[in-house]
Amino acid sequence: MRPFEDYNPFVHLVYFVSCSAIVMFFLQPVTVVLSLLGALSLFFVRRRLAEGRSHLYSLALFLVMALLNPLFNHNGATVLLLINHNPITLEAVVYGIFAAAMLLAVLYWFRTFSQIMSSDKLLYLFGGVSPKLALILSMALRYVPLFAKQAKRVNDTQRAMGLYREENLIDNTRAGARVFSVMVTWGLENGIVTADSMSARGYGIGKRTQYTLYRFYRTDVLLLCTTLLLLSIVVVGGALGALDMQWYPTLRLPRTDALALVTYVAYALLSFLPTILEIGERARWNCLQSRI
């Protein structure tokens, strides 16, 4: 059992896309709750309570989104109250809450995804589609910190030469533009040397190979197959109507027959798969350590 983060990036891509696509496609209370819990548990298992304030923003976003729907959407049969002659309905309120929860779930899935998907991994995936583009991306990624550093240097030098004047926004904006402009010159000149260095090492003489640090280990294949299996169960279940849901004009509760239950269990497993892996891996380490 390896930490979830160390699996092959392709497995990550398939996993996160499956999880978020299901909840976006089959928007219904059970999937939304499962997905949200899965996403949150993964996030907190990995990060504990780091980035505390960002969760408050997420909560605020959730509240705004949940409120927006009943204000703009007046479908539904059960009228709770009237605002400006517009009915606020129970159905719209409930839908708003679940739609906002779905967004929150997707947000958290992709937050973890962004943390895991380092540039190396993205390039590995991109390289499969277009090696040339992957290389351009890699170059750009190398340039960003380089340019930022150089821009800071130019800025310092120019400041010490009196380019900026305090309390004069227009002049300072103009000065900023000049610094950025000289960065363009510098970047382009710099790039030409890089291009030389690429040609000197034989870039463009023939078909390239892609060297990557990532392999498919047995465990990768296992996790990928599990993900795909669970995904297909949910999709088949959904196609057979197990996840059908009626929001308007009146709410009808999600199905609870055998097919629906199997589908829910499959999606629950899918949602909590990485959390289970993380916890299992930690337990194993604790166990190993206590034996030493």
Partner: peptide, 20 residues
Amino acid sequence: QQIVTDKVWHELAFGLENLG
């Protein structure tokens, strides 16, 4: 200015990748 890629390992492999 001569460095092409963003990672050390990739830079080392760059020339050989070009040769296929």
